[in-house]
Amino acid sequence: MSSQIINSPTKLSFFNLEKPINLQISEYRFTFIDLFAGIGGFRIPLEKLGGKCLGYSEIDSDAIKVYQQNFLNQYINNDEKYLEDITKISELPWQVNLIVGGVPCQPWSVAGKLRGFDDSRGKLWFDAIRIVEKNQPEAFIF
């Protein structure tokens, strides 16, 4: 009986498998940008809490590809801005409620030989702080 339901074209006719469902919310509780976005670890819970990501920054090409495949397409989030390298970001094109980012941890760990600020990735903290100071969000999470 269950195979009849699954295979029934009338039961599945409301699904359009050619085009993803547009899950955009018309009202959001807050807006945010995703610095050091990686593959979207911060983004997932923030969207579940009602956040709208306006832009993201990441330099790893593989991570960018996964991020874009997971969160951006012609149907949803197609207006979201790629902010490129954090060192090149100055003033954001919009006011956001929240700035989030997973600053690279390698400079502070054995994996990065504990080089701290002597590692160029360790200095990215200064860029994150600069963006927060310049744009004055209501909150930030790093």
Rank of each mutant, 00 (worst) to 15 (best):
N73G: 12
E47I: 03
S61K: 12
G51N: 13
Q69K: 14
R43T: 12
S90W: 06
K52S: 14
G41I: 02
A63I: 00
S90M: 07
I44Y: 11
N77P: 04
Q69A: 15
I86Y: 01
L49I: 03
F32T: 13
V96L: 02
T31E: 09
L92W: 05
R29N: 14
K88E: 14
I64Q: 04
I33K: 01
E58R: 00
Y82M: 00
Q68V: 06
L54F: 14
I64D: 08
G55W: 00
Q69L: 11
Y67G: 13
Y56S: 13
F32K: 03
P45W: 05
A63D: 10
W94L: 14
D60S: 00
L35A: 12
P93M: 13
L72R: 06
Q95T: 10
S90N: 15
F30S: 10
F32W: 06
L35S: 11
G41Y: 01
L54M: 13
V66W: 00
N73Q: 01
G40P: 07
Q95N: 14
P45N: 07
P45C: 09
I86R: 00
A37S: 11
I89W: 06
K48R: 14
L54C: 09
Q69H: 10
D62H: 03
L49H: 09
G55K: 11
Y67E: 14
Q74G: 13
N70E: 09
L46Q: 02
K65D: 09
Q95F: 12
K81N: 02
N77A: 12
D79G: 07
Q74D: 14
D34I: 00
K81R: 10
R43E: 12
I89P: 06
I89G: 03
F30V: 05
G55Y: 01
E91R: 06
K65H: 10
L83S: 02
D34P: 10
S90Q: 12
I44T: 10
Q74E: 15
K65G: 04
I76C: 08
G38M: 01
V66P: 08
V66N: 06
Y56H: 10
W94K: 12
N78H: 14
E47T: 08
E80M: 15
Q95K: 14
E47F: 05
D62M: 02
F71H: 13
I59M: 02
D34Y: 00
I76W: 04
N77I: 07
Q95S: 13
G38F: 01
F71L: 08
G51F: 04
K65P: 04
P93N: 11
R43H: 13
V66I: 15
K65W: 03
F32H: 12
N73R: 12
F42K: 01
F30E: 13
S57I: 03
S57M: 00
G50A: 03
N77Q: 12
G50F: 04
S57K: 00
D79F: 07
E91H: 12
V66T: 15
G40H: 02
Y82N: 14
P93K: 06
G51H: 08
G55V: 04
K65F: 13
G55H: 02
G38Q: 02
L92Q: 11
A37M: 05
I64T: 08
T87H: 08
I86C: 10
E58H: 01
Y75G: 04
G40M: 04
W94Y: 07
